[in-house]
């Protein structure tokens, strides 16, 4: 959506730059963390956490999902559910395999 008065839009513009800066900093952090000597599980967790935060900021502010219509929310919830289902694929292939050979 986004506001309609010039005042509102100028407020939005300020927010866009702040978010842009935050994304920049998070990118620096994610690269910096990758040079730390942490366990593989921890590295994956941190990298994905930061990516999710960044993605969330882009979706919420740049794609202005914070003030969107219900139909869009419903559609995205549905998509997220099926996206999660897709992630069953790797689990489904590996979970409790029947011993072969």
């Amino acid at each position: 959506m986004g506001g309609h008065t010039a005042e509102e839009i100028r407020g939005e513009i300020r927010r866009y730059w702040i978010i842009g800066l935050a994304l920049f900093l998070l990118t620096v952090i994610t690269v910096a963390v990758s040079y730390l000597d942490v366990s593989a599980g921890m590295a994956v967790f941190v990298a994905l956490l930061i990516a999710c935060i960044k993605g969330g900021l882009v979706a919420a502010v740049f794609m202005h999902l914070i003030s969107e219509r219900q139909a869009i929310y419903a559609l995205l919830i549905l998509t997220v559910v099926f996206f999660a289902v897709l992630m069953i694929v790797p689990i489904g292939t590996r979970a409790s395999p029947i011993p072969m050979g």
Binding site: G2, T30, V31, S34, A47, G55, V58, A59, F62
Partner: peptide, 24 residues
């Protein structure tokens, strides 16, 4: 606005590609 939404999505995909391919 609509092309912007698409463009942000392309950015969003890259935000996930970057760490999962380059950093992990």
């Amino acid at each position: 606005e609509t092309v912007g939404l698409y463009w942000h999505f392309v950015d969003l995909v890259w935000i996930f590609l970057f760490p999962t391919l380059y950093l992990l």
